[in-house]
């Protein structure tokens, strides 16, 4: 378990609700990776680590749009899977930076597996649609099917995240057996802003704003460097 049974269940419920809210209902974006990372930071008390995961998965696939039939990677499942793996890993005594970089790695994998979860859900929705059709598209039947569609969506995400939790224990044991030093974790984490910079570049390129984007990055970089230098002098 992660910290306590209640917190583990809460984490799984939030992740599953995030999966439903992301696409099927409301779309208020309250449980997208960044806002969810702040909420989980308040619950689990590791705000900086949660923010690293939240910011990474919030930005990584921003340029992949859910246009038409396109199914982008599932950033909510990716984020919650990464959080589960991170929290289990640190319980096994793996250094925080290593646990973070490994959880990001598995988070990306889960983001792509999450596309499959979306496909499964759409297949289930098709069956529900056919069931409604067979029932003569009665208003009461459609109303009832809404609860079925949303409940199944929630359960599918819940089962997936529970499987990630179960898988996280042998994974953490395996990672511990590798006995890595902290340098790979730190190296990867420092590379995150640069990776995000380039991942959003494809979106900026489509909008023909590449030069403005690069110029702003450089100006901001030297400005922050200057401010940091001033603070150091002070």
């Amino acid at each position: 378990m992660i910290e306590s049974v209640a917190k583990t269940i809460l984490l799984l419920i939030l992740g599953s609700a995030g999966g439903v809210e992301r696409y099927a209902a409301f779309q208020f974006s309250i449980l997208r990776p960044f806002p969810a990372s702040v909420i989980l930071g308040l619950i689990f008390g590791r705000m900086n680590e949660m923010l690293v995961l939240g910011i990474f998965f919030e930005v990584l696939w921003l340029s992949k749009l859910p246009v038409g039939n396109t199914v982008p990677p599932h950033e909510v499942l990716a984020f919650f899977s990464a959080v589960i793996i991170y929290l289990v890993s640190i319980r096994f005594g793996i250094p925080s930076s290593d646990a973070l970089s490994w959880s990001i790695f598995w988070g990306i994998v889960n983001g792509y597996l999450g596309k499959r979860v979306d496909m499964v859900q759409r297949e289930i929705n098709l069956r529900i649609a056919r069931w409604i059709e067979a029932g003569g598209e009665d208003e009461e039947l459609i109303g009832r099917s809404l609860y079925y569609a949303l409940s199944i969506n929630f359960v599918v995400h819940f089962i997936y995240l529970t499987a990630v939790l179960v898988f996280a224990f042998p994974l953490a044991l395996f990672l511990k057996s590798l006995s890595l030093n902290t340098s790979p974790g730190l190296i990867f984490l420092s590379g995150i802003p640069s990776i995000l910079f380039f991942s959003y570049l494809s979106s900026v390129k489509k909008q023909r704003l590449t030069s403005l984007y690069i110029l702003t990055f450089l100006i901001a970089f030297f400005l922050f460097l200057f401010i940091h230098w001033l603070q150091w002098i002070w």
Partner: peptide, 22 residues
């Protein structure tokens, strides 16, 4: 574009401040 570029350059400093830096 302006916000994202500023954010990514700031995150480098943020990772430094929070000891996620190399």
């Amino acid at each position: 574009s302006v916000l994202s570029a500023s954010l990514f350059s700031y995150l480098i400093f943020w990772s430094y401040v929070h000891q996620f830096f190399s």
